[in-house]
């Protein structure tokens, strides 16, 4: 079945909410408005306003409320209209959700999914275009998932909803309309398992979320130029499936990491450190990173384009590690 990323998320939540009455969806405009990005279309009609809870614009308040509800045995799905607004609720996700299990010596759990769109769309300005996954990955006690395809989005969101831990589930606004096959039956995808999205033997690219699509496009073009790229999507950013990445690097001897987030202290720095530690002797060239530029996102289109990784930069990085520049 060919459906959009948006519909895949909708199906995942709908199937899980039908299975378990303790699951509820809460956030701004999730109910009668049908979701700011229409991810929860039809939900309030099917599940009613008690389980599809429209909130005022109060991210810290309703994220904290969801955490408290999770502590009392419910399983909330918090929709952030964008992950940028998650910064307002960071005290709740970092100081409470991530730590309550540990601080309580395992007495309490916070089964909770916080989901919403991250990264840039088109010209939304500095406050609505951020890729904040590295922030969340830094915090012990959180799991972080950022799927790129409708199939992965559906399977991983279902797993996230069934997990007993607080999970940050980062979508990408520009992916909502992309289409992909999700098959016909019900399925889940395990958290923490990467997927080789394209097999190759010359160089490995690690890319996730929207950047995966960029990596695959670059790989197509490079193939025509005689470079066969292996593309790996970690899908789960924390815990990350490093063995799959390391195995690929041992095969290809070269690694490029593509991420939309800022370069300094970005996720790619961690992937590089892990690969250097595990496979230094297998590397034929220094690892290359293609990242967002270290600036607040500008509004003007040419400037915005300059701030975000694009295909030429990915191709350039691959050629650099291959010594073909």
């Amino acid at each position: 079945m060919l459906i959009s990323y948006r519909e895949a998320l909708n199906q995942a939540m709908r199937e899980e909410m039908r299975r378990n009455s303790r699951i509820f969806l809460i956030g701004e405009e999730v109910g009668y408005y049908q979701g700011a990005f229409k991810v929860s279309k039809g939900f309030v009609e099917e599940f009613g306003p008690q389980r599809v809870v429209d909130t005022p614009i109060t991210e810290a308040g309703f994220t904290g409320l969801a955490i408290g509800a999770a502590m009392a045995g419910l399983h909330p799905i918090v929709e952030l209209m964008t992950m940028n607004f998650g910064i307002v609720a960071l005290d709740q996700s970092v100081n409470n959700a991530a730590k309550i299990r540990y601080m309580s010596g395992g007495q309490l759990s916070v089964p909770l999914v916080i989901r919403g769109p991250g990264s840039a769309a088109h010209q939304l300005g500095a406050q609505h275009s951020q890729s904040l996954e590295a922030w969340f990955c830094h915090v012990p006690g959180l799991k972080v998932i950022a799927p790129a395809t409708p199939h992965d989005a559906k399977g991983l969101l279902k797993s996230a909803i069934r997990d007993k831990n607080p999970i940050i589930f980062i979508e990408a606004q520009l992916l909502y309309g992309t289409k992909g096959d999700v098959g016909d039956g019900e399925y889940t995808i395990p958290i923490g398992v990467a997927e080789v999205k394209r097999v190759g033997h010359d160089v490995t690219i690690v890319a996730y979320s929207k950047m995966l699509l960029l990596a695959l496009e670059a790989a197509d073009q490079l193939s025509r130029e005689g470079i066969e790229v292996e593309v790996i999507d970690p899908r789960t950013l924390k815990p990350m499936d490093l063995p799959t990445i390391v195995a690929s690097v041992k095969k290809t001897g070269r690694l490029v990491i593509v991420e939309e987030g800022w370069r300094f202290c970005g996720l790619g720095a961690q992937v590089a450190e892990s690969v250097y530690t595990a496979a230094f002797d297998y590397l034929d060239a220094p690892i290359q990173r293609v990242t967002g530029e270290d600036v607040p996102m500008p509004y003007s289109r040419p400037l915005e384009d300059a701030a975000i990784p694009d295909k030429p930069r990915v191709i350039d990085a691959v050629k650099t590690v291959c010594g073909r520049r």
């Binding site: 309703f62 408290g68 509800a69 502590m71 009392a72 419910l74 409470n96």
Partner: peptide
């Protein structure tokens, strides 16, 4: 359900416990 040490930060949790009941 706990003692919390970020001033004000546990008050939303209380609303959540009440929401759940």
């Amino acid at each position: 359900m706990g003692g919390y040490a970020i001033v004000g930060g546990h008050i939303p949790l209380a609303t959540g416990l009440a929401f759940a009941t």
